[in-house]
Design a protein around this nucleic acid. Sequence first.
RNA 1: CGGGGUGUAGCGCAGUUUGGUUAGCGCAUCUGACUGGGGGUCAGAAGGUCGGAGGUUCAAAUCCUCUCACCCCGACCA
Length: 593
Amino acid sequence: MSTATLNNQSKAVVHRWSQTLIPTTREAPSDAVMPSHIFMTRAGYIRPVGSGIYNYLPLAWRSLQKISAIIREELDAAGASEMLMPALMPMELYKDTKRDQNYGDLLFQLNDRHGRATALGPTHEEVITDLMCGCLTSYKQFPLNLYQIQTKFRDEARPRAGLLRCREFIMKDAYSFHLQLDGDAGLNHTYDKMYQAYTNIFTRCGLDFSPVEAEAGPIGGSASHEFMVNCENGEDTILVCPESGYAANVEKAEIGNRPHNWDQAATSEVTKHHTPGMPGIALVAEHLGTNAAGMLKTLVMRTVEDEPKWILAVVRGDHDVNESKVRDAVGASVEMADEKESIAAGFVIGYVSPKMLDKTEVTMVIDPDAINHGSWATGADEKDHHITGFNWSRDLPSAKDKAIVADIRNAEAGDPSPRADGVSLEAKRGIEVGHIFKLGTKYSEAMGLSVLNKDQKKTPVIMGCYGIGVSRTLASCIESSHDDNGIIMPAAIAPYHVHIVTIKPNDEGVLDHAFTLAQELAESGLDVLVDDRNERPGPKFKDADLIGIPLRIIISSKAIEAGEVEFKRRTDQGKAGMVSRSEILQTCLDAIG
RNA sequence: CGGGGUGUAGCGCAGUUUGGUUAGCGCAUCUGACUGGGGGUCAGAAGGUCGGAGGUUCAAAUCCUCUCACCCCGACCA
């Protein structure tokens, strides 16, 4: 009783299986594919309502609350304050940042009874920036870091994998405000503190994760890191350098130095080929007697400026152009050019070759790997035609002077590491559970958030934002921690610490004994579930494995007579061991750590 | 948004090709008895707008048209 009464946050929790809702099933829904989805459904954690919409049943909700509690502790310790913003927001808020367009269909939109355009919040940069416009009036108020844990809505094109990609999900989002980048009050300091807080949070949740450099995406801003749970089934690809520890999302990963040489010997003449009706570079390559790596892919892009410029991005046929890298190479944001406009400007979309460099006003950026070969197949700048035998120095000598050579493609496993000579990048899969951004002044400038500084000068506010997918964290935990029999929950976020299984609960004293023990454990701060159902032992053990509570105590009349109980960790194989009744509390406390 | 697939009891499925008793099976559920250490046995019971609408027919789960929902792959995606 002592510890519990001293710190009033823990009230003894003992739940009876028979009086809560844990609808386990023997078989998984046929459409579930991912282990976390299958087991969370079978173990009675979640039930679907619609595509990407789930009920969180008591077990899931208890875990989510524990994850939330860890987040709160770490963020409060890092100097952030919790608040709550509405999920419902007027579309007008998005006007200045144009995210109603940038987010597009991802934004859930609705009209209220007056016909006012309204959205369900996918994230809250605009709401909080708008709030701060009215609250932040002095430089003395900085820095400030606010967060909320809330349901978010995104109309995903393809919800999938249970809780891993939902249309309605639980997220922690935090926003920090600064007047400078450096120093104790600066963005960089808070960013580092949040990075550390995230590391603490995911470590405490018992996850195997990696922080990686990331692309800022439509949120915008400069630096950005993602926290990835290492998991084969993950949607994201990350590239790591085994030597230097460099790790980055595939969208962001730099590629180490790749020498290039324009003066490759030509091995054949330029020949034109008729290649009608061949969708995809692989088909064309096959027809031309080569493969994708023997072709040049030339993408027509435009800069996003008041007076857009044409950009030709050239990569090897088997590589993918990375828009952000093109942006960095040309010094302006770029987007894929509109097909009609491109055609009007003379680009034969689908058959564009680098030779357009000499035919029109265009900036060409080229990846080194697209240079180092003497004989390329590429488009013929003519509908339904390709050429083979293209040689840079012979057929387009101007490229050497005019083209920008830069890393503009997505990195792949085997590419040289950008941080260690002679070392190759390795590919791993991950699930993104956290993402932090240095936003800079993107939102504050768009929405007019500024204050007077000490020198009475108007200064735009510098922002950071920091997200954690709370429901996704739970799913990713199960995704990486389960066996054939079910979930293996880490103690820190398990719905209960201890699962007491009663054998023959109708026998004299068994239930009483179970509840007395449960109460004792609970008063020492452990959360306890008692399986009091009048079931045979088999199904109860199966269910216990399935829901994955870390510690199991088995109570039977036999053991009671011997003054013992049986004790087993979820991770233990085989039969449970005997522990004397007087020592079981300490055994549990030690096991939970 | 493109491609593929599936909708029959709470869950998993058969039946649809070739229209024809009262739409079946396993698990789960309820009652009773026997049981009791890794998804029991026996006996009984309950549970269905066959996703929906329209059509063809003497007759539709089955054929036709439309539609809705869900899943998978891809595109997309803090």
